[in-house]
Design a protein around this nucleic acid. Structure first.
Lengths: 208, 208
DNA sequence: TAGATTGTTAATCGATTAACAATC
DNA sequence: TAGATTGTTAATCGATTAACAATC
């Protein structure tokens, strides 16, 4: 048996958007969707959607399309977004506060269960009923004890690499990095960077 | 004369990261960098860097490499990040507050100069010395008067499309969208979406 | 000059799309 | 059955990389 072809990373990056649309359609009561309709909605070709899905199985029915709720649940499972994920947040500044109050994380099963900051003035501060800012010294032990695998970095750029190293040493395998620097990380640690300035810059290029 | 080949969008998306690295290197006093070194730093092949830059001109010297400060300034100009950009922000919630206090925007010449919210309780609230929350009714006039071309959407998903329509109608040409929905926009309006949940989802796929 | 590195071309690689048999 | 739409293959397209002449 030939090995299953590896799924290209671009495909994995598109699945969340398919999923988001399916949730939207399911919520408004839509039963069935074709690759045509989903593609129009997302600005993607129907062939691409069918090809992307085919990496994971056969989810549709010829002549009919895809059952919205079924495909939604399948994608959710593929992305492991059906699991309950526990996240650490490092950095309790303005951005950290906004992230804690961001309703989508918990709604999608990504729960911030620990917050760390290096400012002693913030230690002990209660951000939510069950969430208190901890000092950096407690990071390793807490992450190990809680078995936390994902973390969000919301510290100034100068501190980000050091924080990333601490997190990885403590066992974290995925980093969502809000600091505008390219982290250097060992094999097997995944990172996604969110840099709004880079986005503004690519847009301003076109404003001529 | 053949028309200048159009620059692929992927290239434009990489330039901000080249620029960011060059700023970093210049700040620590580095004079010269090779495509090799810059590529290692960013996890990109040296050939790709040279090819990308070649869309815009010849910036290096054979045998030597690139003068860091010069290339930085050139990229800054290409991305039009050397211009002073005035932005509107819609949504004065937790995320909006964090964005206002985000130091990188202003540092990079992207200035939030107007904030709008539909909550009357917030109107008149002073967020910075020179920044007061305005009602949505003033959006069109303010944006026209100030000649604002870029905007940030930080409202709940249900409101985002309507807000986008208002902004576009007022003359905005680029939208940085923090709401997790795919906006439908007319030709010639650029949009970039920031969706941390989508990022977490593609990372959790790999955590198996 | 010798060594290094660019800018560019051509080759490779991979992703997207077109097309269609299968089938609901 | 006729019409529609999937899943998949093959063709196309575009992006990345390898290689090297030009040249600092």
């Amino acid at each position: 048996m030939p090995p299953a072809p590896e799924v290209p990373e671009v495909v994995i990056r598109r699945l969340p958007y398919y999923l988001r649309s399916l949730v939207h359609m399911a919520n408004r009561g839509q039963q069935v969707v074709s690759s045509q309709e989903l593609g129009e909605w997302l600005g993607v070709s129907p062939a691409q959607i069918r090809k992307d899905l085919s990496y994971f199985g056969e989810f549709g029915r010829q002549g009919l399309g895809y059952e919205v709720a079924y495909l939604r649940d399948q994608l959710c499972a593929i992305l492991q977004s059906d699991k309950h994920w526990r996240l650490a947040l490092v950095g309790a500044g303005a951005l950290g506060h906004a992230l804690i109050h961001y309703p989508d994380f918990a709604q999608w099963n990504y729960h911030i269960v620990a917050v760390f900051d290096n400012d002693p003035a913030k230690h002990g501060q209660r951000l939510r009923e069950d969430l208190v800012v901890q000092p950096m010294e407690e990071l390793e032990e807490t992450i190990r004890r809680e078995g936390i695998q994902m973390a969000i970095i919301a510290v100034p750029p100068v501190a980000a690499q050091e924080v990333a190293d601490l997190l990885v040493a403590a066992g974290v395998r995925s980093l969502l990095n809000y600091a505008p620097i390219s982290l250097v990380l060992p094999e097997g640690v995944y990172t996604e960077e969110i840099d709004p300035v880079a986005r503004l810059q690519s847009m301003s290029y076109y404003l001529r």
